[in-house]
Nucleic acid binder design. Structure first.
Lengths: 386, 386
DNA sequence: CCGCATGTGTGTAACGATACACAAAAAGTC
DNA sequence: GACTTTTTGTGTATCGTTACACACATGCGG
């Protein structure tokens, strides 16, 4: 009965006529209230109210003015990750803070891991982008650059035309690696995915045939779900840090390697388990592998606190204690790290979100662009080898 | 040196000319790829690539087509709340899931508690709104209705023109209230804010002079920070459920009251502490008041698990045990509830987010609109009175 | 009383795309 | 082969606003 009548949009011109002023006066009354007299503004508001004018059409405004009032955020993960992953959430909180401060809306571009992602970026009505770390070969990054809008990327990849914000992951990994590997004989690493294929696997450290630079290539493929459970290709055992296309993962692996080889250790004897996601449950399953058998690790460096917590769960199921049976480190100093006595790398992802957003919006001095952010090693029980 | 040249935007007409086709063909190539031949589409893509055409201008597209590809989300809290509050985050995850499924971007409207919030809503370039519970007198709700766009509100207030999704908070509060108050002699309630002023206070249950209906009025005022620390007005002691302008808070207070008075108890002897925010630390401070002194509570019903966890912290500081010294209940069955043995109301905020978003986007059958969502009482140790 | 800054109102010309209607060619259909 | 249907390409006319340039009035110092 009360079916909503598809009421035609009231236009600015109609408001102008009703208020007895010009269209421009109405426009100014909304866009630059100081530009018109109090009286005219009141007349306009009154007429708008009476006619049910909902305010300037955002699309028309953005077409004409070139501004949208939106800050775009692109995650190199499924859209829900922004709310599901604790670290991403802290980062986003910082971004949101800046948006609120500047009256900008925050637009999350829907990334699903499919080929349409590029179109979603292209279609995004935003004034600038903040990008959460993704793979070097992610076509979404190219799409962002192609828009020509200001963009800041957190974690990587580095790219001409993108401001870059990240901690020195390699140095931090060396620091925490030294801590967790000290006195160890059979070290292990629990890693984030190596590339966009996101296959979980188990192996040992390996070096490339030829040394390589910063960037490594990989078969661009697949979305998020496509992790083939068993790779029947060539020996899946050798895990080469330089081959990872995620800059953060690559740098942390390199740092762990440096830490171990720096004390005379052999990288090819380090067990490396790769998770397909940043989840405690998967980490728990992989940790069970690392912690059992003839090569059971007596030190595990995990790339994230979530993963480390999974390791702790596996340990308690196996009747192992930390640091009695093995040492353990995490990363990010999440809320659960302190109660668990977990040695970790602390960095304020919230501050980094703030810095990224400010840079994207151009409110940060140019000198502050392309900046490295601080980190701290936090020593706790989990690396206090008896 | 490599200063970014402010390159003029390439237009569709230029691409059309370069590709040797009409403008409409280019438009179709982007908007309805099936509408043009493979060959024409390839020519267009090639020309676009060559000219650096970033794809159709989103503003122009939205002006002409009337669609934006954005789902708007409005929180009755500061924007950062979407990422800081665990419950809001779960809800948002559901919303994000639906957005991803439909290729819609998710736009968070920047709410700060200031007078500009209304403008931010009006300016939002979205196709529909999802609204997270707010106060009955929040002008933002009127602004949303005024846009005429489809909108779904979660938790309240109910409003003509808004679809409504919520659990039966009152019935759930009765259920959990009976559980936590069973055998109690000095019950207490730890409540969310009563109205937009968000003042924290301590008092006893009170009834209004005249009975009132669903809606209560209150002085529309203030933003989030404006909590006057001490209210020197008329007796701040009487806390009347019907006077709360937050529907969720109101219904839960009523339910707690019903649970207590239903067993012959006197509502005016129930201690009520009101938090200004949903945070464990503030709850901890207020709980210390509830749990000490001659009227120390032997049962506390908290409106959220966060608040209940604060109560537990206060208890452990005071050397009190649960349920030995007092019973306790929370709400929402958050991750920490089970380990803490906390009796609580479980409801899937993620599912509710999904339902809200689907309804807003019009993909849910009309019959499913205006729906109540399920809840469950989860009994745990915290109400097992010895 | 001039010169100049400031405040306020107006008209015109885009901004860059898509809805719509139509035409021509290609493909079935009996 | 005449007919209908589908596929594909093309103009034209807006969509609703704001940038810009200009006009006029007012205020103020000299």
């Amino acid at each position: 009965m009360s079916g909503r009548t598809a009421r035609r949009r009231v236009t600015m011109a109609e408001v102008a006529r009703a208020a007895g002023v010009s269209v421009m006066t109405v426009s100014y009354a909304y866009g630059q209230p100081g530009r018109v007299s109090d009286e005219a503004r009141a007349r306009v508001r009154e007429a708008a109210e009476r006619l049910g004018y909902p305010g300037p059409h955002p699309g028309a405004r953005s077409l004409r003015s070139g501004r949208t009032g939106n800050l775009g955020v692109v995650l190199g993960e499924h859209l829900t990750y922004a709310f599901d992953d604790p670290q991403a959430t802290r980062f986003m909180s910082g971004v949101a803070q800046v948006c609120a401060d500047h009256g900008m809306a925050l637009t999350l571009v829907p990334i699903t891991g499919g080929p349409a992602d590029v179109d979603r970026v292209t279609e995004a009505a935003v004034d600038a982008f903040v990008v959460w770390t993704t793979a070097d070969d992610d076509p979404v990054v190219d799409a962002i650059v192609a828009t020509g809008l200001p963009a800041v990327i957190h974690g990587g990849p580095r790219r001409e035309g993108l401001s870059f914000v990240a901690a020195d992951d390699r140095a931090a990994a060396v620091a925490v690696g030294r801590e967790v590997f000290a006195g160890a004989r059979r070290p292990g690493v629990l890693s984030f995915p190596l590339d966009r294929a996101r296959v979980s696997r188990l192996g040992f450290g390996a070096s490339p045939a030829h040394t390589s630079g910063e960037v490594a290539s990989s078969p661009a493929s697949a979305g998020f779900g496509g992790a083939a459970p068993s790779d029947t290709g060539p020996s899946p055992e050798g895990i080469d840090p330089d081959a990872s296309t995620f800059r953060v993962t690559r740098q942390r692996l390199r740092g762990y390697r440096d830490a171990w080889t720096g004390t005379g250790g052999d990288w090819s004897r380090v067990r490396v388990a790769v998770c397909s996601t940043n989840s405690a449950s998967e980490a728990e399953a992989l940790a069970a592998e690392l912690l059992t058998g003839p090569h059971a690790c007596d030190a595990v460096a995990a790339m994230g606190d979530e993963l480390a917590l999974g390791v702790l769960r596996a340990a308690s199921r196996l009747g192992l204690t930390v640091p009695g049976d093995f040492t353990l480190s995490g990363w990010d100093d999440s809320a659960a790290a302190a109660p668990a006595g977990l040695t970790t790398i602390a960095q304020s992802l919230r501050d980094q979100g703030i810095r990224c957003a400010r840079t994207a919006l151009g409110v940060l001095a140019p000198a502050d662009r392309d900046s490295e952010v601080p980190w701290t090693l936090i020593r706790r029980e989990s690396t206090r080898r008896p």
